[in-house]
Design a protein around this nucleic acid. Structure first.
Length: 915
RNA sequence: GGGCGUAUAGCUCAGUGGUAGAGCACUGUAUUGACAUUGCAGGGGUCGGGAGUUCAACUCUCUCUACGCCCACCA
């Protein structure tokens, strides 16, 4: 027997201790070779990351699931690891170099990559330490990294296989180029933002001798990107646009460069919009690229006016006039760029059509351009405006890979929870574009492709194989690019288990059982795992995908560093404990909804932990220790039978909630049971059993049952609050003299809901509760001090009343604050009357109350009961209801009516007795 | 432009075809043995507006309003 628990609960005191105990003893994945497997993989956080509130939610939910399944005896595996996060990590290390006035390009590629590895070894463990503080029970013994050797093997094999199957190819087309990071990025990494900008209107002079029908010798075009006019290759008009029919096939002479470009017909030009004519820059605009292709241009011939970094004017074929060479796309750092110079030159040439507007005072104002809100693409990492740029990149044929996952979701082979996300999923998957997977970075999986001097490509797992394909003596150069980080993380559900080797883990733990992720990575990660799971493994990576929402600031705003409203989960853990934060996350997680942060509520769950702590202290002080049996003890006393029944009901509800992945319902179920049933009623009911002179037999039975019930609470609560439950579990075990050193709660057995409980016993306790509540309520209303002990008379007792008064008088007297109930008529005089079920207690209150007050109280109750009865009577009097409603509904209405009208009768009689 | 979601007690949110619940907040009250990080009692909602289906709608359908999110090439 150890020391009793400290009087106050201090989360910090126990959390670190238990976490290291679990980890050091391999308790996150105990040996269970014959058990049914249960597997989830953790979305690998960026190795550069630190735990934010969204991680706290995501990982809490997963930990609840995995701890629950572990308690239910499964071979529960929660795979964990980190993602090399190509762009993010390279940026971190580059920023460090910059701080020392150093830069990446001062190093060789190998040396730089070596520096990144060094950084990873030194600083990459932050988030994994923080996950431990949250209490996450991952299998750290097999911690993964997306650039581990075996993982890299999986990545390269996948690339080569996809290439050989024609599902990866190299193509020259427009990509989203991030000029800051100097790499291509995928469509998903582009974020469109509305930016206040300008819409310029130009005159493009027609070639000599050509005029429009109305006699004008120019075509008006409008653009939000004037600078790209240097690389214009056409002007497009709609085929049905009469205004321009006569000039189709003719040319305009581009201002500044004087290049002649054709006027072409294309559906893309909207006659309703602006002048109806649109300038076409296929090398710098996605729409124009398509127009150019339709007009017969080849990608290789499309003009590109920007330099090798995609943001400074340059050209090798005299496309760009000298004065533009070296200018940035547009104004940057207060220095004018090509855009400003183009405007200036056009203005000088009187080819800029001014925009006339009126000021508030009604004065006419002439502007260079029309102010307009422009949907502008930004790189999600670099934060600068994306430049559509013509380059050679590697593409995955996502459309082909998407076919099977779409089918799987449609057929239910993959269930998305909440279901409403399925529509979003289909919408994206059915319109999916080729996935650009090459990145112009140094940190990442280098693309296994080699080029010979003629540019022919050889894709192979190794250089030797590529050489063999190319033929001996052919000089090969490896593609310098690396793969999109998401290409590798798409393999996470099986590459972490050892694939492409056919390991036992793969055999046993693939497919996984569930994936939990934020909806924000549905396309980035979840969908791609489905594609790669299908491609590599021939099946879906998991049958269920649970998507949770975002954690928002208390005011509902999205948290962001720039807004400064980010809540640090570690701060909350410091203040309230990890258990409280976890419980908050679970209790707030209802499907399909974001969570608003609420510190007060976290505090409330800290209070709940304290309540449990104190309840356990109470148990200990009364000799209640760990139970010796897993099954419910046999009990004779009504209160004990009652609590056994309540435990069973709670387990059933909890199991149901977990099966449905209703974390809120699960948390609330165990919360309500613990506080409102176990603490508020059961512990109060059993107090008399431990009073001096009480029956030793009763005390013994109660100790057994109470210890068992508390154990069940601890186990049921453990997935939500792992630390305090482990602490109390051991404290209870030690008290019982059966040390639980070898039997921690993390690997304990989940309660079995099966057991038989006598209905009369539970009815009796429900009756005591009703009586007690009614007495307390009446006292309150009549202004009688709650501590006052009252005498009660029960002239005619129901069966329940008679037996309960006989068997549980001590509890009744204690809870309802009554002197022993007298089973006879009360003496004449003022009295209050209390109902409980069918029984009416007379409680003489000579000199304590005013009869008028008691009458008012009873009248109020009578009115309530009558109102209910009347409403039900009306419904039952409706022939349509009786005939058409479901029989159960009619039966229930009848029973309710009987109950309320009897209650009303009793109250009426009570009022009559008062005269 | 398309798609989706949300509107229920002062606040944050559950909820079911049979006239509503939780936590916090609020009001009153209790304090010598589990717990004031507490106990007990209580007040508070025409379930966003309108229409429809139904014996019956907060719950189903339509529509309107407000807010939010995602996708999309309006130059």
């Amino acid at each position: 027997m150890t020391d009793t628990l400290p009087t106050t609960f201090d989360p910090a005191d126990i959390e670190a201790r238990w976490y290291s105990h679990w980890e050091e003893n391999g308790l996150f994945r105990p040996e269970r070779p014959n058990a049914e497997p249960y597997t989830i993989v953790n979305p690998p956080p960026n190795v550069t990351g630190s735990l934010h509130i969204g991680h706290a939610l995501d990982n809490t939910l997963q930990d609840i699931v995995i701890r629950y399944e572990r308690l239910r005896g499964k071979d529960a595996l929660w795979v964990v690891g980190t993602d090399h996060a190509g762009i993010a990590t390279q940026m971190v290390v580059e920023r460090q170099l910059e701080e020392r006035q150093d830069k990446r390009t001062n190093y060789s590629r190998d040396d730089f990559v070596e520096k990144v590895w060094e950084w990873k070894e030194e600083s990459g463990g932050t988030i994994t330490r923080q996950l431990r503080r949250l209490g996450c029970s991952m299998d750290w013994s097999r911690e993964q990294f997306t650039m581990d050797e075996h993982f890299t093997d999986a990545v390269l094999k996948t690339f080569v296989d996809l290439y050989n199957d024609g599902l990866i190819y190299r193509d020259k087309r427009l990509v989203n180029w991030d000029p800051k990071l100097k790499t291509a990025i995928s469509d998903l990494e582009v974020e469109t933002q509305d930016i206040k900008g300008s819409f310029w209107h130009f005159k493009y002079p027609l070639e000599d001798g050509v005029t429009l029908a109305d006699g004008r010798d120019y075509i008006e075009v409008a653009t939000t990107r004037p600078e790209t006019m240097l690389a214009d290759m056409a002007v497009a008009v709609h085929p049905s646009d009469e205004r321009y029919a006569s000039v189709v096939g003719k040319h305009v002479v581009l201002p500044i460069t004087g290049r002649k470009v054709p006027i072409v017909e294309d559906e893309h030009a909207d006659p309703e919009l602006g002048s109806g004519a649109v300038k076409i820059t296929p090398g710098h605009d996605f729409n124009d690229f398509e127009v150019g292709k339709r007009a017969g241009m080849l990608a290789g011939d499309m003009l590109n006016m920007l330099d090798g970094e995609g943001n400074v004017c340059q050209t090798s074929d005299a496309l760009v006039p000298d004065e533009f060479i070296g200018l940035h796309r547009f104004k940057r750092d207060k220095i004018d760029g090509a855009r400003e110079l183009v405007i200036e030159r056009l203005k000088e040439a009187e080819l800029l059509i001014p925009h006339i507007t009126k000021t508030k005072k009604g004065e006419e104002l002439e502007l260079d351009a029309e102010p307009r809100t422009i949907a502008t693409p930004f790189g999600d990492r670099g934060g600068v405006v994306i430049e559509p740029w013509l380059t050679d990149q590697w593409y995955v044929d996502a459309e082909k890979l998407a076919a099977k996952p779409i089918e799987q979701v449609k057929s239910g082979e993959i269930e998305i929870i909440p279901e409403t996300w399925e529509k979003t999923f289909f919408n994206w998957m059915e319109n999916i574009q080729p996935w650009c997977v090459s990145r112009q970075l140094w940190w990442g999986h280098r693309i296994p492709a080699w080029f010979d001097e003629n540019g022919e490509v050889f894709v192979a797992l190794t250089e030797e194989e590529a050489q063999a394909k190319a033929g001996a003596g052919v000089a090969l150069t490896q593609d310098p690019d690396v793969l999109d980080t998401w290409f590798s993380s798409a393999l996470w559900p099986f590459a972490t288990l050892g694939w492409p080797n056919d390991t036992d883990l793969v055999q046993k733990h693939f497919p996984n059982n569930l994936l939990v992720s934020g909806f924000d990575i549905l396309f980035f990660w979840d969908a791609r795992m489905m594609m790669m799971g299908q491609y590599n493994m021939g099946r879906a990576p998991w049958p269920k995908l649970y998507l949770h929402g975002l954690v928002r600031a208390a005011d509902g705003a999205k948290m962001s560093k720039s807004k400064g409203n980010v809540v640090d989960p570690l701060g909350l853990i410091d203040e309230y404990g990890a258990d409280a934060l976890r419980f908050f996350m679970a209790a707030m997680e209802s499907q399909g909804r974001d969570i608003k942060m609420d510190d007060e509520r976290v505090k409330g769950y800290r209070n709940f932990a304290t309540k449990l702590w104190n309840a356990t202290r109470f148990c200990q002080s009364n000799g209640i220790g760990a139970s010796s049996t897993l099954a419910a003890p046999t009990a004779k006393l009504a209160a004990n039978q009652w609590i056994i029944g309540e435990v069973q009901q709670t387990v059933e509800e909890l199991d149901k909630a977990m099966a449905d992945l209703r974390f809120d319902a699960a948390a609330n179920t165990v919360y309500q049971f613990t506080w409102s049933r176990f603490c508020d009623w059961y512990l109060e009911l059993i107090k008399p059993v431990f009073a001096e002179g009480a029956s030793e037999t009763a005390a013994t039975e109660t100790r057994e049952v109470a210890g068992w019930a508390l154990d069940q609470i601890l186990v049921m609560l453990h997935p939500f609050m792992p630390f305090i439950t482990e602490e109390l579990w051991h404290a209870q075990g030690d008290l019982a003299g059966t040390s639980r050193a070898e039997y921690p709660i993390i690997t304990a057995k989940w309660p079995d809901p099966r057991a038989s409980v006598a209905k009369p016993a539970t009815d009796a306790i429900d009756w005591v509760i009703e009586l007690t509540s009614n007495v307390r309520s009446a006292k309150n209303e009549l202004g009688i001090p709650p501590g006052t002990k009252l005498a009660a008379f029960l002239p005619s007792a129901s069966a329940i009343a008679a037996s309960t008064i006989e068997r549980s008088s001590a509890a009744i007297e204690r809870l309802a604050r009554l002197t022993p109930v007298t089973l006879s008529e009360a003496p004449d005089g003022p009295a209050m009357q209390i109902t409980a079920g069918e029984d009416v207690f007379i409680i003489p209150l000579e000199g304590i109350i005013d009869i008028a007050e008691e009458k008012a109280r009873l009248t109020k109750a009578l009115e309530a009961a009558s109102k209910e009865a009347k409403s039900l009577e009306g419904r039952l009097g409706n022939a349509n209801f009786v005939e058409r409603a479901k029989p159960e509904a009619v039966e229930k209405a009848k029973a309710d009516f009987a109950h309320h009208s009897a209650e009303a009768e009793r109250l009426k009689a009570a009022l009559e007795r008062l005269g």
